[in-house]
Design a protein around this nucleic acid. Sequence first.
RNA 1: GCCCGGGUGGCGGAAUGGCAGACGCGGAGGAUUCAAAAUCCUCUGUCCGAAAGGGCGUGUGGGUUCAAAUCCCACCCCGGGCACCA
Length: 841
Amino acid sequence: MASGYNPAEYESRWQQRWIDERTYEIDNDDPRPSTYVLSMYPYPSGKAHIGHVRNYTFGDLLVRYRTMNGFGVLSPIGFDSFGLPAENAAIKSGEHPRTYTDARIEELSSSLTKIGAVYDWRRMVKSHDPEYMRWGQWIFKQFYNAGLAYRAEAPVNWCPGCKTVLANEQVLGDGTCERSGDLVERVDKVQWFYKITQYAQELLDDLDDLDWPKRVKTMQTNWIGRSEGAEFALPIADAEGNARTDVPGLAVYTTRPDTGFGMTFAVMAPEHERVDELTTADNAEAVAAFRATVGEKSEIDRMSTSGPIEKRGVDTGTKVVNPFTGEAIPLFLADYVLTTYGTGAIMAVPAHDQRDFEFARTFEVPIRSVVQPTAKWADENQLPNAMRPASEWPKAFVDDGEIVNSSNGSLDLNGLSVSAGVQRATEWLESEELGEGRVNFRLRDWLLSRQRFWGCPIPIIYCDDCGEQLVPDDQLPVVAPDDVEFGADGRSPLATHEDFLSTTCPECGKPATRETDTMDTFVDSSWYFLRFADAFNTDAPFTADAAQRWLPVDQYIGGVEHAILHLLYARFYTKALADLGVAPKELREPFKRLFTQGMVRMGGGKMSKSKGNLVAPEAIIEEHGADALRLAILQVKPPAEDVDWEDFQLDGCSRYLGRVWRLAASTGDIDNKRSGDTTNADDEITKSTHRLIERVTNDLERWSYNTAVAAYMEFTNELYRYVQSDGGPHDTTLDFAVDTLLLLLAPPVPHVAAELWEMRHGTHIHEQTWPVADESMLTVATETMIVQVKGKLRDRIEVPAEISDADAEALALASEKVQQFLDGPPAKVIVRAPKLVNIVP
RNA sequence: GCCCGGGUGGCGGAAUGGCAGACGCGGAGGAUUCAAAAUCCUCUGUCCGAAAGGGCGUGUGGGUUCAAAUCCCACCCCGGGCACCA
């Protein structure tokens, strides 16, 4: 036997060879069919932890597999290198974020190399690279000129910990900042926005054609939140309850115009712009008091339903007219109506909306049923008689039912279903010129400005005379100065840096000031995958031709935590760039296929730097080798699932690679090898080899890496038995089996496969072609036919693979074991030759 | 509350209507060795049985089917997302 498996001897040597020999560098004129495999570029936090290793192992396996399949694979890597941690480090230590970040990139790059991941490093993109910033700012300008970037005052999310505003997408469900965990405050501020809402419908529609995990698509669908309904005006009532014509009505939005006859009050958001106008003198004091309490509340308090409901609304004293019934109804303010959605005012139908129901109960507004509850619903709610008045219901009836009590001189909804009622009521509103059908989205525009230093500056200059001006192209990139001091107060030093601030107006040449806000780092990650396609271009962010050559990304790999942040923004950017003619017109989506891998946990919890439970791969690689670590990652669990570090089986994987090593390194020394004609046993090995090719190829294609590892192990076990068998192995049969195994192992464990292949052949395994199974070798001579009696296994019989149904049935019925369970001729026999016969007595 | 996943040995998991538990970990036994490590081989769901063999078994309860971990209905539990969005 050859010397043992010793990865330390050769792993770094192969890593260096892949770089020196430019094995995975690829040019845009490469003649091979192209494919683009991309793992989400990492935030450079320093040395890799085991979670990184898992993510980048999956991508690397695919790059190597596709390369062996004859593709010219674009496999780039970059770093999402702007962001708060570098700035926080600067505040703490005084080290400039750039030097800090460059050092972290160095560490992470080195880690990636040590796990055997291969990239075209020439194409590296770093967010903080001035050349990348130049084009990022240039793109901002195109968006600005197209009306897709604008500045506006709006209620925004302010994180007191990060001292910056956040996008809606960065505020967690509990109202805290996704980064610092601080409670986010709502403040009015002038900020920069991208008009992502312009693409809401397309972002929704195009999800259909993406080969993405269903749950990610669902999350985006929910986030975009399309709803169909009607927008119409409630006339303001005069003292007699008649509609005034001298003031415009109050616009409301509803998805249930079918329940218009059940509207017994209306509600405005406390921040609604017409509150003062529509409050009576008598109620002004109460309204002012109410608005003050709402203003004090945090978003969380406001969202919680635990507070006393009587504190959550106030009567304006004004009445509006329900256009369906002609009745004058009260107008309230309530904190459950949001100013940012729809028109900021609603028609309230307490019988058929739970929030309206609770509000009406407290404020003693009539509850009028206009949809007949179903008997089932009445039953579930202990209402023996569904006809009881709605005021006695325990809750609102919101399901489909038959519309009742709903007619006036020109509209009759009675007897219709909810959906038919919605349609008829909308048509009526339109014909009466009261309103129209309308689609609303939950999605808001993307707030992109950040009051931070370590980000890409927004290329805007403010001039007292000329107003907002774009920085001219020849002055790009706008780069933050180096001579800055980070104070302990956490504010961006940009805002107070005189040399940075003062500039001249590009229009009139007079003194002017720069915008000091920087862009959200999600802007940087919204087009880096396009830059990779043309990374050396100094005249443009990329050419449409280069983008056409590589995009969309054929396989994108990353964490599900980006489902509605990065993955939505990148889709918007791609669509906008295509419409602006920067990217190819046809490029509507950036990522054709998406795979979301699970994360690595520790002790059941998330691994994180702050918890101090990161597992560093270095020590593991030293002890077991990078290949064993990669194999353990693949073997332990399906790649889409979260995994606990405790479940990794490094010893087992190490042991397995040792078995492969001894088998492949020693086949020349086996002394009982035969030549010449092959025996049945030899032919079975050859067939198994072909079956392995088939199995592994299928498993790699369907991301079933854990079963692929099982297949390697099973086959290796079979080869061990074969080598040790009485007859001994046949020389070419064994060589074929071992060589094939090595080829199939090359993507998951690239170093050991390369080393063994070179020992055996003197060539480079990663330049070999992926083996193809011979169809004719996948057939077997005999099958084990299972015989069931009434679905229970009673016997197994070896039968020829091409046995007829009749023969199979006869054989099964003749079985002694089967006979024991039969007392007479069977009632029915199901035959699926050659796999199964099921006898029903 | 709504929307997605998921629930299988001591553990990670396999099985896309047809032999439940592949493969690995852990465990037991054996070979090799002066001994050990390493390595190699065998066994390992559960109950009854000396064995042959048989019963039971994929969260729970029903159903469809010759046949269900797999499909359908109801429920329980775990994980994730969204959540006053009118």
